[in-house]
């Protein structure tokens, strides 16, 4: 079984791949990219929920840190959810410039967010939650996004 860090890091890379395919498709035709955009939004939303509902919750319970790094990460999730909604709106309005402006912003926000998680939070989580790692990965793996 993969560690928490590996599992979530791999999921970041999976989302990056869908993101790249989405942009590739949007570069050809914005309308054709709608399906991939939805796929990216769903994959990212699922990732956020694996963190918020499982890993962050376990981390907060174990460490008692509810206003620390996880609060910051939750806030950045909110920022990204708003950008993703705007991307879907831009596709509906067939506004390619707006769409790529949003993906550019999202890309940087997402990457610096991932970096903070991969380099700090996941490492901390792995240390504090190592005894329950298998159970937590299992729970994340079987999550059904709300």
């Amino acid at each position: 079984m993969a560690s928490i860090k590996e599992y979530l890091t791999n999921d970041h890379r999976r989302c990056d791949e869908i993101f790249a395919s989405m942009e590739e498709a949007a570069n050809e035709s914005l309308a054709d990219a709608k399906e991939l955009t939805q796929e990216f939004v769903d994959a990212t939303e699922r990732h956020f929920q694996m963190e918020e509902r499982v890993m962050f919750a376990e981390f907060e319970q174990k460490t008692g840190m509810t206003q620390g790094p996880t609060a910051m990460m939750r806030q950045e999730h909110t920022q990204m959810r708003s950008l993703m909604q705007q991307m879907i709106d831009a596709i509906d309005a067939n506004n390619k410039d707006k769409f790529f402006g949003l993906t550019e912003t999202l890309m940087i926000l997402l990457q610096q967010h991932n970096m903070k998680e991969e380099q700090m939070l996941y490492t901390m989580a792995q240390q504090h939650l190592s005894a329950d790692a298998d159970r937590i990965v299992d729970m994340m793996d079987s999550i059904v996004p709300e």
Binding site: D97, K98, F100, G101, L102, E104, T105, I108
Partner: peptide
């Protein structure tokens, strides 16, 4: 929330 995107 209503900020121009990077490209704008």
């Amino acid at each position: 929330m209503n900020i121009p995107t990077m490209n704008e």
